[in-house]
Design a protein around this nucleic acid. Structure first.
Length: 417
RNA sequence: CGGGGCGUGGUGUAACGGCUAACAUUCCUGAUUUGGGAUCAGGCGACUCCGGGUUCGAAUCCCGGCGCCCCGACCA
């Protein structure tokens, strides 16, 4: 991709109406645009990051045998009245012209449970796992912290359907492992900890994935050694003892909840009538689980975790591009070398952004490059050519070096491997 | 929802109740320039969030509303 045609406008100064690091950086860099409090558009660079995250999630969902669908945003009140959740204040509700009412989906347990009635009638139809990556709407009392708590946001929600608690338990553990993989792969695995948390009105406990960061709004008690944590919401001596932990091995931490998995049991299948016939021909309620991740919140979390005074520093796996090629200067040799290099790297399938702008100064190009946070920067200039080739610098390192052009393909390939 | 702060060109800021609302940046023209958001010259761009009030006169003071941010409460 040539930067001269990229949909982008960077800013020298961060917006005055944002305090959170993720929003200030992502807006400055032109990755997102604020529409209203807690409502952000994703611009092309930001969407690339989001799609990288989604791709990783989809791969892990496939590993669980889950299939992707897209459920409706508009929700039927009748379905939600059966579970008793139509009256919750979290809804954005909207009126129909004929006097009726619909709600904008803030989660999809009821909708999925209702539609599954058309797909499950026998134990032979189970288990089933289905997920979507879809926009959710929540009428938050207070949106905050940029991408970390919005009123409109992307969510991956997976739902599983089982005949027995044992089958749910087994799948739940597999899902937990898949989640671990997702956070590892997007680059925040080291800071993300499985945390015992409230099960809401579904079950005694659930598990959250909490990423340590001062930007978070949750407090957890963490044992790094045993790699287990307890959310403050449910932190009591009893819960601590049930995990075999003593208070002196736990540290209090602030963290961002990046994922949450629940055992739902029959909380929704029973009131909505999702039943199956067992081998004896008797009707039984389906046992369910639900598993959520916010890709946008992950993106914001990564921005919180990885940045410096000059801008973003994306992990390779989620970076909008893996290589940022800068052309400094307009001499024939520089132009020819840079153009050829760009074609070469692109042909190899590397995700390269080529700053080919003729009217941008060197300083502007370097500043933009640091702000974007693309992992590997290459510079072609008269200076680099006279030094013997192409300047190579990683975004997360301070040192650059010049290598002969002939060595570059291997170097670039090695970086992404 | 309680408390606090803030609303001025696209962006960031300034302006005692008093001249044509200023500066920087972005953008446009031209020149020059290409290793850290370069330099010079010229130019475009604002009903000062909205509505009311006080006043000879309001960006500025008062009232109401709306919006944004922060703290708290809330958060399947």
């Amino acid at each position: 991709m040539k930067q001269s045609s990229l949909f982008i406008k960077t800013r020298k100064q961060a917006p005055a109406d944002e305090v959170s690091k993720n929003a200030r950086l992502l807006i400055r860099a032109g990755f997102i645009h604020k529409e209203a409090a807690g409502v952000y558009s994703y611009l092309p660079l930001g969407l690339r990051v989001l799609e990288r995250i989604n791709t990783i999630i989809r791969e892990e969902m496939a590993g669980l045998g889950a299939e992707e669908a897209a459920f409706t945003t508009l929700q039927n009140p009748e379905t939600w009245k059966k579970s008793g959740r139509w009256e919750l204040p979290v809804w954005f509700k909207t009126a129909l012209n004929d006097g009726g009412e619909l709600g904008l989906g803030w989660t999809h347990e009821e909708a999925v449970t209702a539609l599954m009635k058309n797909h499950v009638s026998s134990y032979k139809d189970l288990p089933r796992k289905i997920f979507q990556i879809h926009t959710k709407f929540r009428n938050e009392e207070r949106a905050k912290s940029g991408l970390l708590r919005g009123r409109e946001f992307l969510m991956k929600d997976l739902y599983s359907f089982h005949t027995t608690e044992e089958d749910l338990d087994a799948f739940y553990e597999k899902a937990k492992e898949a989640y671990r993989q997702i956070f590892e792969r997007v680059g925040i695995g080291g800071e993300t900890h499985v945390t015992l948390s409230s099960g809401g009105d579904f079950s005694p406990y659930s598990h959250e994935f909490q990423t340590l960061s001062p930007a978070g709004e949750d407090t957890i008690y963490l044992s790094r050694e045993k790699n287990i944590a307890i959310n403050q919401e449910i932190y009591t001596e009893k819960t601590r003892a049930s995990l075999g932990l003593s208070s002196d091995e736990l540290t209090e931490e602030t963290a961002i909840e990046v994922g949450n998995i629940f055992k739902l049991g029959t909380r929704f299948s029973a009131p909505l009538g999702l039943m199956y016939k067992d081998a004896k021909g008797e009707s039984q309620p389906v046992i369910m689980g639900s598993y959520g991740i916010g890709p946008g919140r992950i993106m914001g979390t990564i921005a919180e975790l990885f940045s410096d005074e000059r801008g973003l520093v994306w992990p390779e796996a989620v970076a909008p591009f893996s290589v940022h090629l800068l052309r400094i200067g307009n001499t024939d040799a520089v132009i020819e070398t840079a153009d050829a290099l760009y074609r070469h790297i692109a042909e190899k399938g590397e995700r390269v952004l080529f700053d080919d702008r003729e009217d941008a100064s060197a300083g502007e190009k370097f500043a933009d490059s640091d702000l974007f946070g693309i992992p590997l920067r290459l510079v072609v200039s008269e200076k680099s050519l006279s030094a013997g080739g192409i300047e190579v610098k990683k975004r997360n390192e301070n040192e650059s070096r010049v290598i002969p052009e002939s060595e570059l393909p291997a170097f670039v390939k090695g970086e992404s491997a």
